[in-house]
Design a protein around this nucleic acid. Sequence first.
DNA 1: AAGTTTCTCGATCTTAATAGTCGGGAAGAC
DNA 2: GTCTTCCCGACTATTAAGATCGAGAAACTT
Lengths: 140, 140
Amino acid sequence: MLVTQKKQYALRALFELARRSDQAPIKSSEIAEAQAIPPRFLEVIMAKLKRSGLVISKRGFHGGYLLARPPADISVADLFTALDEKDRPEACSACVGKSTCPFMKNCVFMPLWEEAHNAVERVFGRTSLQDLLDRDQAPS
Amino acid sequence: MLVTQKKQYALRALFELARRSDQAPIKSSEIAEAQAIPPRFLEVIMAKLKRSGLVISKRGFHGGYLLARPPADISVADLFTALDEKDRPEACSACVGKSTCPFMKNCVFMPLWEEAHNAVERVFGRTSLQDLLDRDQAPS
DNA sequence: AAGTTTCTCGATCTTAATAGTCGGGAAGAC
DNA sequence: GTCTTCCCGACTATTAAGATCGAGAAACTT
């Protein structure tokens, strides 16, 4: 999978928060229900998003989650890189850790992996939550 | 991983074939050694490349593998799609198989996954084995 | 203050995909 | 005929992803 289930869940969750960004904090369980996400799993996802500063949490009776920034200021790439840090370009498996690499210090493939990585980063970098909201309002 | 180990092995194998495309058939074991690939694993990879028509095989004493087409006519994308057929854009996990999908028939995310998928396809589609060879000759 | 409600944390389990192995068989060269 | 190489299918192992659970800490309510 190019985009893991977890990332898709996370995106849907943020989308749900964005959609109701005027309202009071939204409970994890509400989001889970609205977006058909396993509730317990969503909890761990939200916790991570909290730690990485994308959302703000409030505990207690009227607790829940809020976006930390306006939807236009959160890109899909922000989310993805927040979710897992080891999201860099492919390393050429032959060049890593082995002295048997046939392309010492001049790997032919690295540039290719980087290109690919950058290509998807650009797509996700230029799409914000607001963009997704807009698409929702005006179905093309 | 954006590009699995298997695909990287396969690419390196094809690269090795391209590099010596003037010569007689090259044994799987030779390729394995030259590119530091687990020999037994490479066999299954080569078999698949054979079946999908990217390489030609010859059995017996002076047997081995040859590229089926000139290096300039084989793109990295050709290889990857040959290796696994289920290499399409991400499906929105909420939309698939469930009637619980919150975005009935108007998914906001699908276009995004498609964009990303196309972006990497384009990178791999425009890079041929010959391109890689050239990079090897003239290190920038 | 007592009692909910909700987030928070860490460990754990399950499942699926990837990576890699093995033994034996068939085609071709010498 | 025998040696070499590709060929095939089943099998095992390792890892990453997906998901669950129980108990604890903050916060609100009455």
